[in-house]
């Protein structure tokens, strides 16, 4: 079934052009995400190579800084937001009208904001303990990696606001459907990266 091609997309066979453009955009965005994956990969590798006593330069290390509870809560927030984002995709695919989509998107944004708040609180705690990014090479790479992910989440929040505005102004047009679909890819991708971060940075650091 062609509807299975891209979950959340039901432009139908009658919208030939729109469907083709949408396929282009979705594939293009996949390619962008893969490029972004390399960006994260470089920072992951830098972090892994910096997890040595030399790179920590006598500064605070993982045991003194990481808070497993907070990491767990952030993980929960992000996973929940992935689920709600999926619900938004389903609403887009099966329900007429924008209300349900907007609702799930708003919930996703709130969960994302919760994640961000916890992350910022962790950063503030670390800085209070003297663990600024300027303290050591290891901390620089930690802030860069986790911070870049946080920056992506922030961009995602802005994106949701723009999407909500668009839905409010125009309703759910074909173009907006494609954009919602792309947003969902983006958001799920950030969850994937987070799996890497909590495993490589936080759990490995505390093990």
């Amino acid at each position: 079934m062609s509807q299975n091609l891209h979950p959340g997309l039901n432009l139908g066979a009658s919208h030939g052009d729109a469907h083709q453009q949408s396929e282009l955009s979705v594939f293009g965005f996949w390619v962008f995400l893969m490029s972004d994956l390399i960006t994260f990969g470089v920072l992951f590798a830098t972090y892994a190579a910096s997890s040595t006593p030399i790179a920590m330069a006598g500064g605070p290390g993982p045991a003194a800084l990481f808070d497993l509870t907070s990491t767990g809560m952030q993980t929960a927030f992000l996973l929940a937001s992935s689920l709600t984002c999926g619900m938004a995709s389903l609403a887009l695919k099966y329900r007429e009208g924008p209300r349900r989509i907007a609702l799930w998107l708003a919930v996703t944004a709130l969960l994302g904001a919760g994640f961000l708040a916890l992350e910022l609180r962790d950063f503030a705690d670390m800085i209070a303990k003297g663990a600024t990014p300027m303290r050591s090479g290891w901390l620089s790479s930690l802030y860069a990696l986790v911070g870049l992910h946080g920056l992506h989440i922030t961009a995602g929040l802005v994106w949701i606001v723009v999407l909500l505005l668009l839905i409010w102004r125009r309703g759910v047009t074909d173009l907006i459907k494609t954009r919602l679909l792309i947003f969902a890819l983006y958001w799920h991708f950030l969850d994937l990266v987070w799996i890497g971060i909590f495993s490589v940075v936080f759990l490995r650091g505390l093990a």
Binding site: G59, P133, M134, S136, G137, A144
Partner: peptide, 9 residues
Amino acid sequence: FHFFSNDLG
């Protein structure tokens, strides 16, 4: 930051 500096790791 100290990614590529001589000192502090």
